[in-house]
Amino acid sequence: MAKKTLILYYSWSGNTKKLAEKIHTQISDSDLKEVDAVDGTFDADQYKTNDIALDQIQANSFPDIKLDNIDFNNYDLILIGSPVWSGYPATPIKTLLDQMKGYQGEVASFFTSAGANRKAYVNHFKKWAKDLNVIGVAENDSKITEWVN
């Protein structure tokens, strides 16, 4: 039986959104939802946004997010998409993972990047996910089909 899958993503420039939409078309029983930072959190300039995110990480003060009210436990698998910022998932993902505390299903992450430090991303994602059941992290859509099967 196919797993009921939720695809959540944060996309600053649109690349992660495109990948999330592609994955959504490949998984028949899936829902797709965007995680967004509240208006005014980040800058239109990617370098300034990166600095803002690093300041948030340093201060352990993560941004508020906009997301539909979701009962995460209605899903067997939640795929979380993010760009890579200085080896970290985008900071709205930390806020999301904190909101998912108590989720009993499987979690996997996919990311988009122009030459990211994959190992750092994986380590930071797993650390931020704390007690969630993280089954894997894939760059682009390399492992998505495998997870779904």
Rank of each mutant, 00 (worst) to 15 (best):
D64L: 11
Q99M: 04
K22T: 13
E146H: 13
S142C: 00
D68N: 14
K3C: 00
V137P: 03
Y88Q: 09
I70P: 11
H24F: 05
G40N: 08
G136Q: 11
D31P: 00
N123H: 11
P63K: 11
D64A: 15
E21I: 00
P92H: 08
L97D: 03
F62Q: 08
G87N: 09
D43S: 15
K17T: 01
A20K: 02
A53Y: 07
T145Q: 14
T95A: 10
Y10W: 06
Q26S: 13
Y121I: 09
P63L: 06
G40C: 09
I144W: 02
T145M: 07
N149C: 02
F125K: 04
K119W: 01
Y75D: 10
A108H: 13
S30T: 06
A116K: 00
A2C: 04
V122L: 06
F42Q: 04
S13L: 06
Y9S: 03
K17D: 12
T41F: 01
L96C: 10
K4V: 08
S142G: 07
F62W: 08
A2M: 14
D29R: 08
T5M: 11
P63F: 05
Q46K: 04
A114L: 11
G102C: 13
L77R: 13
F111I: 03
L79Q: 04
K143D: 14
I27C: 04
S86K: 08
S30A: 15
K66E: 15
D36W: 10
N74W: 05
W128H: 02
A129T: 01
N15V: 02
D45V: 01
K66W: 00
L77K: 10
G115W: 06
K143C: 00
K17G: 05
F125C: 01
Q99Y: 02
S13G: 14
F42T: 04
L77I: 00
V122I: 15
N73A: 14
D39M: 10
D71M: 09
V38H: 08
G115V: 03
D31A: 03
S11F: 01
G115H: 12
E21N: 12
A138G: 13
M1A: 12
S30C: 11
T91S: 05
L6V: 09
A44T: 15
A37L: 02
N50T: 15
S13I: 08
N149M: 10
A108C: 02
Q99W: 01
D131T: 13
A37H: 07
I7W: 07
Y103P: 07
K3F: 09
K22Y: 13
H124M: 05
V137W: 12
L96Y: 15
K18V: 00
A138C: 14
G136S: 10
W147H: 05
S109Q: 07
N117W: 03
